[in-house]
Amino acid sequence: MDGLVALCLAARAESSVGSQVCTSDGATLAQQLGALTAIPGGTVLVARTEGAVVGLLLGRLLGPNPFTDDVSLAVEALYVDTRHRRRGVGHALMVGAAEVASSAGAQHVYAAPIPGARGMQRFFVQLGFAAAAAHRVTSTVALQRRLAVDGAMVRRAGSRGLEDLIARRRQSRAGRAADKAGVGDVVRVGDKENVPFAEDAPAQPSRLSISKQVKRAVQTRRDAESSTTTS
């Protein structure tokens, strides 16, 4: 519980609207987290490494109720310690959340990113969550499929880590964009046409060589015209 409280307070300090995240009083926050676990369907997932709590996910199973027959999982908070980001912690927490949703028969997973956490917004978008009022939503099946694909890519990355995987994705996108132009295509600049690759164009004499040849020819012609014969 102490680790959970510390992470919640860190999330509060990081958010631009900290008062909307949680209370700043650690004792009160511990009581509130305990109450969440006592609520039917309340879910708390914790990521630990070397005995330290480095990530948390707070969720709650909703429904059925008089307004819907469906069961959904609401992810109310997801936070990873700044020193352990880009290491798959958030991904692992979402895998756990998807398993909770699937076990409960929840067809959809809703998420409410912490206010002001732009990185978390991007994270949910990358996992396929679409806007739904003030939340984001995706189907449980689609989430599990996306998490499986991302997990396979991370495993193939091996020891080079997630940062290298992201760099390779960016490089791949840049390569596809470059391929759209086509090798050897003519690119028009102003009123001139230019061939991007020199090896695709016919070889041309250098300007220096041409200049020397013209100068030599002109000089030879002038010498012949200006010569005189004396008797």
Rank of each mutant, 00 (worst) to 15 (best):
Q213D: 09
A178G: 15
S211G: 09
G175P: 09
E193I: 05
R176M: 03
V195Q: 06
R207E: 00
L208D: 12
A203L: 10
A174W: 09
A178H: 15
A198D: 07
V187W: 05
Q213P: 01
E199Y: 12
V195P: 01
S172R: 10
V183M: 09
P196F: 02
A178R: 15
A198T: 08
S172L: 13
G175Q: 14
K192L: 14
Q204I: 03
K180M: 14
P205D: 05
A201L: 11
D185I: 05
A174L: 15
S206T: 02
G184T: 02
V187M: 08
A177H: 06
P202H: 11
R173S: 07
A174G: 12
R173D: 09
D185S: 15
A203Y: 06
V187P: 03
R207V: 00
S211I: 04
G182A: 05
S172T: 13
S209L: 01
R173E: 10
E199H: 08
A174S: 14
V189D: 13
S209R: 01
D191V: 15
F197E: 10
A178P: 14
P202C: 12
A177Y: 03
V186S: 10
G184E: 03
D179E: 15
P196Y: 01
K192D: 15
S211Y: 02
G184A: 05
S172H: 08
A177I: 04
K180E: 13
D200T: 11
G182F: 00
A181E: 01
R207H: 01
R188H: 13
G182C: 03
V195K: 04
V187Q: 09
D200W: 06
K212Y: 00
E193R: 10
A203W: 06
A198C: 06
K212D: 01
A198M: 05
S206F: 00
D179K: 08
G184K: 02
K192I: 14
S206P: 01
V187C: 06
E199A: 09
K212F: 00
P202E: 13
K212W: 00
G175D: 14
A178Q: 15
Q204V: 04
K192S: 14
K212S: 03
S211A: 11
V195T: 11
R176I: 00
R173W: 07
A203V: 10
L208E: 13
A181S: 05
V186G: 06
G182D: 01
K180W: 12
R176F: 01
R207G: 02
F197S: 04
D200M: 10
S206K: 02
D185H: 13
A181K: 01
P205A: 12
Q204A: 12
L208Y: 08
F197V: 03
V195F: 04
G190D: 07
V187L: 10
V189N: 13
N194D: 04
L208K: 09
G184C: 06
A177C: 08
E193L: 11
D200K: 05
E199R: 05
S206G: 04
S211W: 02
Q204Y: 04
D185F: 08
E199G: 08
G175F: 14
D185W: 07
G190M: 05
D179G: 10
A178E: 15
Q213E: 12
R188N: 12
F197R: 03
Q213I: 05
V183A: 12
S172A: 13
A177D: 08
R188Y: 10
Q213S: 12
P196W: 01
P205V: 05
G175H: 14
V195N: 04
